[in-house]
Design a protein around this nucleic acid. Structure first.
Lengths: 150, 150
DNA sequence: ACTAATAATAGTAATTATTACTAATTTTTA
DNA sequence: TAAAAATTAGTAATAATTACTATTATTAGT
């Protein structure tokens, strides 16, 4: 199954779930801990980073469990996946409205609060026939540290 | 080597290349054809899509050649790679300033011209210590077709 | 046009991130 | 406390991309 299909299925699921009951989810210790790790850092970690951290307290943790839970938590809207030009996925525990800056030199990802005066979704909707729900902005350039080094 | 390192190296290369001579690049027929294919479509294709097309005229084409050239063309700034939530990379032959809309249902990617009244880079720079070179906006929602089907 | 130098390619192997699978375990429910 | 069901560990499989090397194609200089 491709990710294109997954997006479709996820969308359908959300629509249906608002009508019927949510399937019962169990608060396993590991899931809780994985969520906390992502929430308590600003580095926008990968699955491997989370795995290495949580494994210190749960030595039998499996990497698959981390992946499964990160994806689950994304579907639940408790965290989000970032779209960056890195080989592995990065996650963000902050689901509030904000954007990101990526340094072209060191590759670090920073949060960036930015409120546009215009409503960009509405502006884009007027130019198209789409119904736009949300958007993300990714900024690129040099971070403070890397700027100084030049 | 991770992609983070690659970004670093690419950046260094560009800086240095402006001082010294560009290495000589040969205009092979296949590279030319790959570039044309990406330039002549609006579907934001994957390497596999390009491969299947170009192979019709060059039956001995190798998929590795397509990957190598797509990456090369990105580095040269002739095409760009999009950051989408799909398992495989998508490319865009249009390098002019524009943004993208991705339909949450069918997964199609559309170009979206949008000129903001504010200079978002400058606005973001004022809030941070970064020097911002460019940004990309990804919009999400339902496309025309998918909207009608509901 | 010919040749030397070297960039590009084909074909294959290797790598890496992620997902799939299933028996065993943990958590919840009643 | 026992039954039901979600979750996990451990492993295998998958899929996209990159790496490698002998061969081929392109360019530059004569």
């Amino acid at each position: 199954m491709t990710k294109a299909n997954k997006i479709f299925i996820y969308y359908k699921k959300v629509k249906n779930l608002s009508e019927m009951d949510l399937p019962s989810h169990r608060r396993s210790q590991k899931r809780q801990r994985i969520l906390e790790e992502v929430k308590n850092t600003k580095i926008h970690p990968t699955a491997m980073w989370v795995y290495q951290r949580v494994r210190k307290d749960f030595p039998r943790l499996s990497l698959g469990t981390v992946y499964r839970n990160l994806n689950f938590l994304c579907e639940q809207g408790l965290i989000q996946k970032l779209l960056l030009d890195f080989p592995s996925d990065h996650f963000d525990g902050d689901t509030s409205l904000h954007h990101h800056f990526i340094c072209k030199v060191c590759g670090k990802v920073f949060d960036l609060d930015l409120k546009t005066k215009e409503n960009l979704s509405k502006k884009a909707e007027k130019k198209t026939d789409f119904s736009i729900e949300n958007y993300r902005i990714y900024f690129y350039g040099l971070c403070d540290r890397c700027k100084k080094r030049r």
